[in-house]
Computed example of a mutant assay.
Amino acid sequence: MSDSRDTHVELDVDSVFKALADPTRRLLLDRLRTHNGQTLRDLCEQLDMARQSATQHLDVLVRANLVTVTRRGRERLHYLNPTPIHEIEQRWISSFDRPRLRALSAIKHQAEEYAMTTDASTGASTVPDYVYVTYIHATPEQVWKALTDADLTARFWGHANVSDWQPGSPWEHRRIDGSEAVDVAGRVLVAEPPTRLVITFDDAVDASPDPSVVTFLVEPHQEIVRLTVTHEKIPNEEFRGDISQGWPAVLANLKSLLETGDVLPQAPWDMHA
């Protein structure tokens, strides 16, 4: 008899392949890849699709974890979650022909870097928001403390996040090498323990008048929580590339710390370096 955990993994993979098999659902993912964080109305207008049909397709994508939904007031925003596709790539593609695929990917990236979306009102280039979702065997209170406690952030992030975490207060991302230099800084916009934290995220030296914004959403479900990190108002593709490597590494370390009592044996961000 096969291990139940293996069966669970296969069922997850089956749901991803089932979701990707439909051309309409692939088109929805393409629309979110071009412009992440859209409402149902936005998606229906782009695809000239009835609301009920779009809802049914989105439900399939959400169950496959290819799309995640967050709330902003009364609106439900839909974000592309690339994690399942990345796992499929790692399992069935990258190990077979990685060098040639990397070369083709580099060519494709260069060809597409001029095709960034633009804001119709200003003509300025826009960069999609970044969303990452992970599931942690912990309580919401434990996750909140891990995100806001200076000593804990020092353990899993390599920097101490220092603030009183009150709305309007500053926060600093301080080095723990003895210098106490601050690499990232910002302000607390929203603090609703233990479920929602919103901060600005900016270079501590070369601050922007319109910094990016990070939202941590902690959603409990029985003995686990779903942690959704949304990074908005991203200034450029280079910055988006950096956080796309950084957030998964940081959150993997956080998950390991809360579930095992210790961080990963090697700093996960060093793999990218």
Score class of each variant (00 low, 15 high):
Phe96Val: 15
Val133Leu: 04
Pro167Glu: 05
Phe96Glu: 06
Asp151Ile: 05
Pro23Trp: 07
Gly241His: 06
Ala191Gly: 02
Pro268Glu: 05
Gly261His: 05
Glu112Arg: 15
Tyr130Lys: 02
Asp22Thr: 10
Gln38Lys: 08
Gly178Asn: 04
Asp151Glu: 06
Val214Cys: 06
Glu238Pro: 00
Val250His: 15
Val205Ile: 12
Met116Lys: 06
Glu10Gln: 00
Thr83Glu: 11
Arg91Leu: 12
Val214Glu: 02
Arg41Lys: 08
Asp6Met: 07
Ile234Asp: 01
Asp203Ile: 08
Asp164Pro: 02
Asp119Ser: 13
Pro82Arg: 10
Leu29His: 03
Ala115Thr: 10
Ala273Asp: 09
Gly158His: 08
Gly158Met: 10
Asp164Ser: 12
Cys44Gly: 12
Ala181Cys: 05
Arg76Gly: 06
Ser15Met: 13
Val198Pro: 06
Glu237Cys: 04
Gln38Cys: 14
Val188Thr: 08
Leu101Lys: 12
Ala273Leu: 10
Leu43Tyr: 00
Ala106Asp: 06
Pro23Ile: 10
Asp129His: 05
Asp14Ile: 09
Glu89Ala: 14
Trp247Phe: 13
Thr68Asp: 12
Leu11Trp: 10
Tyr135Met: 03
Glu192Gln: 15
His8Val: 12
Thr260Tyr: 04
Ile88Trp: 12
Leu189Glu: 09
Arg91Thr: 07
Pro209Cys: 03
Val225Lys: 13
His137Ile: 08
Gln222Cys: 05
Gln166Asn: 04
Asn36Cys: 00
Pro211Val: 13
